[in-house]
């Protein structure tokens, strides 16, 4: 049995890949310096913040891909793009988006005590309105994002006497009107400003690519399940619509089985799909 490759050897080998075929992008490697990754090797497992970046890159090498867009991918290029991501064996065409929401209030009351009271009251009201609710599901206890991954959710970025700034996670059904309606009845609100940071756009891989990658998943993991990312990823960064993300493992833990599964899915996909951009 061959030794589990070190992160340094993975990076070195990846630099020399050149050839033809559909473009393969290792999503987590976009934001990672794999010359000195933050990862440990624990037996046959990469562990740490950059575990998926190293593991997925190792999988691409094991799959023998010809066109690995690494380390400086041509992100503006047309697809098809095979985006390797720690998807736990699922496929992904949708990343949630982000927006900022600034809720502005009347001028605060004079006097420090009154000002603090106003600020507390306003912040409490906004945070109460920001909590996720659903008619049927226990979304307030949903630490794993089973339900909330598909909902417009908010987190506090900053608060002052005359405004509160929230970060919103958005879905394909999120509208500015929905967000305004959520906060417009909070006390003393004068204006709500919404700025989209990253939009939500479903990828549209061509039929042959979808078929190839779905069949590969069925043969390796027994199904071809689609899931969303609750945050924008490399998939959203690519302007081309002809793209799809997939891969085994998780962000911070990527073992030999995840490497092998990802490599097999990738090699089967490339073999069935053939071509790629010129």
């Amino acid at each position: 049995m061959s030794e589990f490759p070190t992160p340094a050897s993975v990076h070195e080998r990846a630099l020399s890949v050149a050839g033809d075929g559909p473009a393969v992008l290792v999503g987590p490697a976009l934001d990672t310096d794999l010359e000195s990754p933050d990862v440990d090797v624990d037996g046959d497992c990469y562990v740490g913040p950059d575990a998926a970046a190293v593991g997925l890159l190792a999988a691409a090498l094991d799959a023998g891909v010809g066109r690995l867009d690494y380390p400086d991918p041509s992100l503006a290029a047309d697809g098809p793009w095979l985006v390797l991501s720690p998807c736990g064996g699922r496929l992904r065409t949708v990343d949630c988006g982000t927006a900022t929401v600034r809720i502005e209030f009347d001028a605060p009351a004079a006097g420090s005590h009154a000002r603090l009271t106003d600020q507390r009251k306003r912040l409490d009201s906004v945070l109460s309105a920001a909590r996720p609710t659903h008619d049927h599901y226990p979304v307030e206890l949903d630490d794993d994002g089973i339900f909330t991954t598909g909902m417009t959710t908010f987190s506090l970025e900053s608060a002052s006497a005359d405004s509160v700034r929230l970060r919103a996670t958005t879905t394909p059904s999120t509208t500015a009107e929905e967000i305004r309606d959520r906060f417009v009845d909070s006390p003393d609100v004068t204006r709500i400003v919404i700025e989209r940071t990253v939009g939500v756009e479903r990828a549209a891989p061509d039929a042959a690519l979808r078929s190839a990658v779905e069949d590969a998943h069925v043969s390796v993991v027994g199904d071809c399940e689609y899931a969303w990312s609750s945050t924008p990823t490399a998939l959203s960064t690519l302007p081309s619509a002809n793209k799809i993300a997939f891969g085994a493992g998780t962000t911070e833990r990527f073992d030999a089985e995840a490497v092998a599964d990802t490599a097999t899915i990738l090699s089967k996909t490339v073999a069935a799909y053939g071509g790629g951009r010129e």
Binding site: L91, V139, P172, R202
Partner: peptide
């Protein structure tokens, strides 16, 4: 989209 199955379908 709170339902995982709906997210699967949309994706």
């Amino acid at each position: 989209f709170a339902r995982p199955e709906h997210r699967f379908c949309y994706g």
